[in-house]
Computed example of a mutant assay.
Amino acid sequence: MTTFEKHYIGKGTQVADLNIVKVVLPVEGIEAAIFEKEGIKYIGFEVAKMKTPDKFGRTHTCYYQTKVYTEDAPAAQPEKQKKAKKASKKEPAVPEEDDLPF
């Protein structure tokens, strides 16, 4: 079985009257969240609204996730999931017969 572990790396505050969240992250947290795919480095993280603001008024939290494999899941299982994802990506998101006006 595969589960995900959250690694909290920073917090942010929603900008007044805008749908924008200003986030401050330590460089060490960003470096830990970097991953590489096909020779290109990426950083992926989530920004989630907290139930209540913290004592500093921050309204959002930032984290990245890593996969955690349990003993009952063989290591080859993620490979099968990757193949299934690749197969589903081959299908077009919009059928070719749709005539969109734009």
Rank of each mutant, 00 (worst) to 15 (best):
K11R: 15
E38L: 11
I20V: 15
P53D: 06
A75R: 09
S88H: 07
Y69K: 09
E91I: 07
L18K: 15
K80P: 00
Q65W: 01
Y63H: 13
K86W: 04
Y42Q: 03
K80W: 02
L25T: 10
T3Q: 12
K86I: 05
V68K: 14
A87W: 03
I34M: 13
V24N: 13
F45S: 00
G57K: 07
A84D: 08
C62P: 00
P101L: 01
G10P: 00
T61F: 04
K89C: 01
G39T: 09
P74C: 05
C62M: 02
A76T: 09
V24W: 10
A84N: 06
E31V: 13
T2V: 12
T66I: 10
N19G: 08
E5G: 03
Q14S: 12
A75F: 03
E71I: 03
F35L: 08
V15M: 11
Y69R: 14
I40A: 09
Y69P: 00
M50E: 11
E96C: 00
I43H: 04
L18G: 03
K83Y: 05
P26C: 10
T70Y: 07
E5T: 14
G10D: 10
Y63A: 09
I20D: 10
E28S: 15
I34L: 14
A93K: 12
A75Y: 05
V24T: 15
F45K: 02
A48Y: 03
S88W: 04
P95L: 04
P92W: 01
T66P: 01
F35Q: 07
I30T: 09
P26D: 14
L100W: 05
P101E: 06
K11S: 11
D54Y: 02
E97L: 01
A84K: 13
A16H: 11
E71K: 11
K11T: 10
E28A: 15
G44M: 10
K11H: 13
K85I: 08
I34R: 15
G12F: 01
A48E: 13
K89L: 09
A93M: 05
K41T: 11
Y42L: 02
Y69I: 04
E46H: 11
I43V: 15
G12Q: 06
K49F: 06
K82T: 08
M50G: 03
T13I: 14
A48S: 11
K6Q: 14
A87Y: 02
T59H: 06
L25I: 14
K83P: 00
R58P: 00
P26I: 06
Q81T: 07
P78K: 08
I34G: 01
Q77A: 07
Q14N: 12
G57H: 05
K83I: 08
A75T: 09
K85C: 01
E97R: 02
Y8E: 14
Y42C: 04
F4S: 13
F102A: 02
G29D: 08
E97M: 02
V94G: 00
